[in-house]
């Protein structure tokens, strides 16, 4: 399943709700679903604030299911991240002026099982997150 939307703050809720509804077929617990919603919200918010710097752009969200594992990819074609390692440091924010907590990637890591960030300055960023629903795979 995939969808594309404009990079706007009001679409953050839309994105996490759509992903949650799609994943409900895995019969997740409320906590698991909330964890995924939080991670999606973080990834999409990053696209809006950092990727497209609150300007225009398209965010693509892809969700796939393999067994009991959900994989969510959030893709933007924005400014990209020069130093992914630094961006992923807890509490680091490139926008202290915006009162960002710097916890976006930390939250994605905490609420999902796996997190991978690929980025190229000037090209964009792809965030891939995986979570196994219902504990370990049978």
């Amino acid at each position: 399943m995939s969808f594309e939307m404009e990079s706007r703050a009001c679409n953050e809720q839309f994105a996490r709700v759509v992903v949650a509804v799609f994943l409900s077929r895995l019969d997740p617990t409320v906590e698991e679903l909330d964890d995924v919603k939080t991670a999606v919200s973080e990834a999409v918010t990053n696209c809006v604030i950092h990727g497209y710097e609150e300007g225009e752009g398209i965010i693509r969200v892809e969700v796939s299911i393999d067994g009991r594992t959900a994989a969510v990819r959030v893709i933007d074609h924005g400014v990209g991240i020069a130093d992914v390692k630094k961006a992923m440091e807890p509490m680091y924010t490139s926008r202290p002026d915006k009162e960002r907590s710097g916890m976006g990637f930390s939250f994605m890591e905490a609420f999902m099982d796996e997190l991978e960030v690929e980025s190229e300055p000037g090209k964009g960023t792809v965030v891939t997150m995986k979570k196994t629903i219902g504990g370990t795979e049978q």
Binding site: D34, K37, T38, S41, E42, T45, K98, E99, R100, S101, G102, M103, G104, S106, F107
Partner: peptide, 14 residues
Amino acid sequence: TVFMDSSGIGALMG
């Protein structure tokens, strides 16, 4: 409140 992400944390800490 039933949902909060790190943006909310930023607002609280600010």
